[in-house]
Amino acid sequence: MRITRVAALAAAATLALGMTACGGDDADEGTGAGSKSFAAGSTMERLNKAQAIKIGTKFDQPGFGQKGLSGKPEGFDVEVAKIIVKELGIPEDKIEWIEAPSKVREDVIVNGTVDLVAATYTINDKRKERIAFAGPYYEAGQNIMVKKDDTSITGPDSFKDGTKKVCSVTGSTPAEEIKKYVKDVATQLVLFDTYDKCRDALKGGQVDAVTTDNVILLGYIAKDEASFKLAGENFTKEPYGIGVKKEDTDFRTFINDTLEKAYADGSWKKAWDDTAGKFGAELGSAPTVNRY
């Protein structure tokens, strides 16, 4: 619970900072309409003028986007989004956070429900047909979590013989990926709406493994090291990107610039260390932004 409190304090502190900035003491970091100049007609200009932004993130992903008891989302995705918002000259408290579970992420971008999505959002070609990605800002990989004393599962191939049961989340990339290895979906695969249900099922013995991106699993292992461990190496690469509208190349470039700036000035590393970095995942070097 301490973590939550610290995070809340941190949030309050940044908020206070933002407010003083509004007061105009600090010309460089100013927020408010017209505080930064952007090309006329661009998304950045529109958002800056409106002084409001809607961001889709997850509300149930520890370390990345999780709504805490304060009712505010916390995590790495949230921090990265805040870095972008700051660069847009919008104060943090003007962000409207909208829950974007795995299965609706493309929809909310296409429909314009949100301005951008930062929600452990794997960049892949199928999604690029409907939306565009800035980033990546982190590279995860799919892995498998098993009980500490389980040696029978060593990787995705362990599911091929049709006896081991595995849990994942509806509509997520890992769920689709693991289907390639599972022999019989009906008797081996369970899908829930959140990963903590999967974790509980693993703990209770209803399933033998949980599969998703390693960082998410590491979060659960960090909380309960006595019960869980990872089985083997990552078997996919999951670069997380920021989802924006497909045709909005300017905004995408702007976000990419912002990310590179954040890599350079240490704010990206700080965001990581404050959130998901606590789970012990290696940060590695910053992924190269892919300006396709």
Binding site: T4, D60, P62, Q66, K67, G68, V104, T194, D196, K223
Partner: peptide, 20 residues
């Protein structure tokens, strides 16, 4: 559909406190 009614909020609380 991610509407924040009682059960959904409960889900969020469970995510933090782990007491489903």
């Amino acid at each position: 559909i991610s509407y924040e009614e009682t059960l959904n909020i409960g889900k969020q609380i469970i995510g933090v406190l782990d007491n489903p």
